[in-house]
Design a protein around this nucleic acid. Structure first.
Lengths: 234, 234
DNA sequence: TCACATTTGTCCGTATGTATC
DNA sequence: AGATACATACGGACAAATGTG
């Protein structure tokens, strides 16, 4: 059979030096050569290792820093330190996209609802005893905070992360992380209300109950109501 | 009511020079001072305008380039050109995140199926006549390619993008773009098969038919079958 | 086709700020 | 408090790319 593939493959572009360096370092991190927390060689050392100037190294480090692969600390024993803050970078970009692309909170909430529906459905199927235990502990912790008239915001975010973990799909864990970070940022812009967080905890408790009973209909119903109120508060 | 909020607000950090420059430029773009397609002043000019060295300007431009706010072209009439490619940047970062977490094809396919189910459901509700028209054109184009014994890979990717557009939710458009990017990468690793792409086109056609008829059940059924075969081929 | 002007890409050298020991 | 080892920032120079006459 004669197959004509008219699509051109990307020609090896003349990549800029700093891009090559950045890609090299990035792939080393992927391979595990450098693990989070470890310190990369200093700019001068990288400069001589790669055989490029310090300026080029700096530009490479800039891009890696912005992508969330490393943080750069000044001072002795400072330098480029491997960090995994890609999720923060992504959520920051989402906020930029909200402005550039005119993404509305409504769109975000709708997408969030859709994703969390699926997540919780998978969680019902795949949650282990430990997952349920963790979720229960989260509720108790949050209730204690509320009873103490303290904010339970972090605990509430954690609840959704734990749900994602229970789904046993890492893609959802990552997406949930994005959602949480964006939420956190949006929340810091709007006025935080103690009653709202208290209501959220109650909702979470009901949700967990339904999840344990594997009552999908109620779970979805509760989730919709919950996320809609959250969306409105933003 | 006494409210104890134990969370500290971030202290105004001493920002680095290039960060200040980048923020300035970014906000100018947000305000519409520079619109997509326009060209920013050259590095030398920016250098004198901001009163910092060219090196600092370059680092600022690097970060903005990576974020997707501009592209930098060399040569006369080149320079920093305002672009709006944040969504592409987000997709690429997701790809990095997936690589960091060693996401499997199975996890990816499961998540993809879940997301596209929601997307197509929204598309049924919100697709305009133009959307339907574009989808139809896509099918005709793809069929023509297949009849000509050519690969219709790009057209097939486009089909899913068009679906996301029809959902009228920009968050989904971003997610779909991510999915496509990852798919493209996975596909480049596995052997591409002409028959597989041909089958995909047929599937898309059926899917579009059901979508026009607003037959949700059939749509979901077809989508599941379609994405599962795609997943297996990877 | 060729020469030229403009702009980014890369390099070297130097000085200063900063965190750690 | 001082020395040390980093990043940060500045200035100048030349190479490479690219559009124009």
């Amino acid at each position: 059979m004669v197959v004509k593939n008219k699509s051109f493959k990307p020609i090896k572009k003349n990549k800029r030096a700093f891009e090559v360096v950045a890609l090299n370092i990035k792939e080393s991190i992927f391979k595990g050569v450098w693990q989070p927390g470890e310190r990369l060689p200093s700019e001068n050392e990288l400069s001589s290792q790669f055989g490029v100037s310090r300026h080029t190294i700096r530009e490479a480090l800039r891009t890696l820093e912005l992508s969330g692969f490393l943080k750069i600390r000044t001072g002795v024993s400072g330098g480029p330190i491997v960090k995994d803050t890609i999720m923060t970078t992504i959520s920051n970009l989402y906020l930029d996209a909200f402005q550039m692309e005119n993404i509305t909170v409504e769109e975000f909430t709708a997408a969030r609802l859709a994703i969390e529906k699926v997540v919780i459905n998978d969680a019902i199927d795949n949650a282990t005893k430990e997952d349920i235990e963790k979720l229960k502990n989260n509720i108790t912790k949050a209730k204690k905070l509320i009873a103490n008239k303290e904010f339970a915001t972090d605990a509430n975010f954690e609840f959704h992360s734990l749900l994602a973990c229970a789904s046993k799909n890492k893609v959802f864990i990552i997406l949930e992380k994005t959602i949480n970070t964006i939420n956190q940022k949006l929340r810091s812009l709007s006025s935080v209300n103690l009653e709202v967080t208290g209501e959220a905890v109650k909702m979470h408790e009901k949700l967990l109950d339904a999840l344990i009973k594997k009552d999908r209909e109620v779970v979805i119903q509760l989730l919709e109501a919950h996320l809609m109120t959250v969306g409105k508060s933003l």
